[in-house]
């Protein structure tokens, strides 16, 4: 089946199998391996990307369902050498250790801040519930997201830019 979509601002057009998951499309067809896979039950959130600016677990969506849409992966977040404010905040506040959950966590946080530019700690915790991290205990992730909110990180990403 034909899909045509924008990934990180670039037009992509491919012939794909109907059963191909978006996460496999991004990793194996587009070569964007920043989006990780951490489970087979849609539980971990490691594969979170933005589709039309909203966070989606890319293992729950078929590549063909992304037809005509705008997908942003972790590779598309920084502006050249300049990290996105959420990435910057994760670095500043040690919101990552092994970094495996990080691409998904950052994308989920970006989407959260787009919806709630000034969340409370409880809202951040609830909002990131679908993303598991085994290393950080979440303390510094939550701190980073709150700091990013403070710094006004809620600029829309991956919607109409």
């Amino acid at each position: 089946m034909q899909v045509s979509l924008r990934v990180n601002g670039e037009e992509r057009r491919h012939d794909v199998e109907p059963r191909l998951l978006l996460v496999h499309y991004l990793r194996d067809v587009c070569g964007l391996t920043g989006t990780n896979i951490g489970c087979d039950t849609s539980s971990c959130g490691a594969c979170t990307v933005l589709v039309d600016g909203e966070s989606v677990k890319s293992c729950t969506m078929l590549a063909v369902q992304a037809d005509g849409r705008e997908v942003t992966t972790i590779e598309g977040l920084a502006d050249g050498e300049r990290l996105h404010p959420v990435q910057e905040a994760f670095r500043e506040h040690h919101g990552l250790q092994c970094g495996y959950c990080t691409p998904g966590m950052v994308m989920a946080a970006v989407s959260l801040l787009n919806e709630h530019p000034h969340p409370t700690e409880a809202e951040v915790r609830e909002g990131l519930e679908g993303n598991l991290c085994r290393c950080t205990g979440y303390h510094n992730i939550v701190k980073a997201v709150l700091a990013a909110a403070e710094a006004g990180a809620s600029q829309p990403v991956g919607a109409a830019r």
Binding site: Q87, R91, G99
Partner: peptide, 19 residues
Amino acid sequence: LRRREDPALLTGEARFLAD
């Protein structure tokens, strides 16, 4: 000190086994 490991991990550049 901030970690030198982070930029690659935060931008998806880091390569894990499955990559």
